[in-house]
Amino acid sequence: MAGDFCDTLDKAAEDERESTLRRTLIHAIDTQGYLDADVAQEAVVAAALVATQCLDGEPVNPHFGPDQPLPELSTDLRELAVQALDRVLGEPSELAQLWGEANKVGTWRTNLSRL
């Protein structure tokens, strides 16, 4: 799923990449009820990509991130990224449920909080 989302970003024109990230974050934020794992995973990837441009942000792993560089992103995406991550971590969220079933929810939450 993360690779698919990065492929989508790579296929988008440079001036469309930010709007692709924005739409992905907003989709997760605005989802009412059960948050599907696919939507949540894309939101996590989008948030991680936004975080790379923050002060002290970790660079994208070249094996897992998009091949094409991202443009300088608007800083308002940072708040959307936080809101999307809050939604992914909240209930009802299939991704949170799956990590809980794997008994790795603590590590997962810690990693997401670093973003």
Rank of each mutant, 00 (worst) to 15 (best):
G90Q: 04
F64Y: 14
R87Y: 00
K104I: 05
V50S: 06
P59M: 03
D56S: 11
S93G: 06
P92C: 10
A48T: 14
N111I: 01
P71N: 11
E72R: 14
N61R: 08
E58G: 07
L55I: 10
D76L: 08
S74G: 12
P92H: 06
P66M: 03
L80Y: 06
L77N: 02
T107W: 11
W108H: 11
L49R: 03
L49V: 08
L95T: 04
L55R: 14
Q97A: 12
E58L: 14
V60Q: 10
W108T: 09
E72K: 15
A51I: 00
L112Y: 01
A51W: 02
L73K: 09
F64K: 13
A48G: 13
A96R: 14
L95Q: 09
V82P: 00
F64W: 14
A84Y: 00
A51Y: 02
R109C: 10
D56M: 10
Q68G: 01
L95N: 01
F64H: 14
A102N: 08
W108N: 08
A102H: 07
L49A: 07
D56T: 07
L77S: 05
P71D: 07
L80I: 03
E91F: 03
H63E: 15
P62M: 04
Q97I: 02
R87F: 00
P71W: 05
D67I: 07
T110R: 14
E101N: 13
A102G: 09
D67K: 15
L49I: 06
P66H: 06
W99Q: 15
P59G: 08
F64R: 15
V50E: 01
L80T: 02
T110Q: 13
Q68T: 13
D86H: 05
P66S: 12
P69Q: 08
N103T: 10
R87C: 03
P69C: 09
S93N: 07
Q68H: 09
N111A: 10
T110E: 13
V105S: 12
V60H: 00
T52Y: 00
P92K: 11
V60L: 12
K104M: 14
L112I: 11
Q97S: 12
L89F: 00
W108D: 02
P59V: 02
T52N: 08
A84K: 05
R109D: 01
P66N: 11
P66A: 12
D86Y: 00
R78M: 10
C54G: 12
D56G: 10
S93W: 01
R78T: 13
P66I: 03
D67S: 14
Q68I: 10
L73G: 08
L85K: 07
R109M: 10
R87S: 02
R78P: 00
E79N: 13
A96E: 08
E101V: 01
L98E: 12
N111C: 07
P92N: 09
C54V: 07
G65F: 02
Q97T: 12
G57N: 03
D86M: 05
G57M: 05
L73P: 08
G57V: 02
P69A: 09
V60Y: 00
Q83I: 00
R87P: 03
D67H: 13
Q97K: 09
W99R: 15
A48I: 02
P71T: 09
E79V: 14
Q68R: 15
G57K: 04
L85G: 01
W99P: 05
D67G: 13
G65L: 03
W108K: 11
G90F: 01
W99S: 11
E72V: 15
K104T: 13
T110P: 00
T75Y: 04
L55N: 08
V105A: 13
P66E: 03
G90M: 04
C54L: 15
